[in-house]
């Protein structure tokens, strides 16, 4: 590539402003081609997505969500059904309480207090329950799915099943512990 083809031959391509000389070298070929290529790409992209009904972002989300839901469904069906007895057995496993205590202290104390005495959320040591009657099934359900109206967030997507059981097991052991400064009873008294 020869540079400065007509450099200096005529004033047309050779200007001067306040001592700044302006040459008129040709446009770099690679630069020109990258410009053309982006324009061509832009054109095709627009045609595909906006004119030729290519998939929208919502369509793409639908496909990916279906896949995720399939994975989640596999997970649910492969896990055994829970009963009060199966939970009792699961809660008694070794190390459950320690794991439960640690999880409770990192995720739950903010609202239920370090002694489960209640603060933002209700007292968990008395016999009064806002949701359900304090059975293992009820406690696991509340932790897992939360209570949207009352501000209890669902932990099912945060904690694994084992972790969920550990927290519930820890809560069960604190029944009747009568901590100091306990929050006044809320909800119905369990039979």
């Amino acid at each position: 590539m020869s540079e400065n083809k007509d450099n200096g031959k005529n004033t047309e391509n050779f200007h001067e402003y306040d001592g700044i000389i302006e040459h008129d070298n040709p446009l770099p070929t690679w630069w020109l081609w990258s410009f053309f290529l982006t324009i061509i790409f832009a054109f095709i992209y627009f045609l595909h997505y906006e004119i030729a009904n290519g998939p929208t972002l919502t369509d793409e989300l639908k496909v990916s969500m279906q896949e995720i839901e399939k994975q989640q469904a596999v997970n649910v069906t492969s896990s055994p059904t829970e009963t009060e007895d199966s939970l009792k057995e699961a809660f008694n496993k070794d190390g459950m309480l320690n794991a439960g205590k640690a999880l409770f202290e990192s995720k739950c104390v903010a609202c239920h207090g370090p002694l489960l005495q209640g603060s933002i959320g209700p007292n968990l040591t008395d016999k009064f329950w806002i949701n359900g009657a304090g059975t293992r099934m009820d406690i696991v359900k509340v932790i897992r799915t939360g209570v949207a109206d009352k501000g209890m967030p669902p932990w099912g997507s945060v904690l694994k099943t084992e972790e969920l059981y550990a927290v519930a097991a820890y809560v069960v052991t604190k029944q009747g512990s009568n901590p100091p400064g306990a929050k006044a009873p809320q909800g119905q008294e369990a039979p």
């Binding site: 391509n13 200007h15 000389i21 040459h23 008129d24 070298n25």
Partner: peptide, 19 residues
Amino acid sequence: YYVPKAANRPVYSYRLSIV
């Protein structure tokens, strides 16, 4: 303005400027 001034060099390409 300042690059060719400070370096005392000619501006490379007028037609590139236009495009």
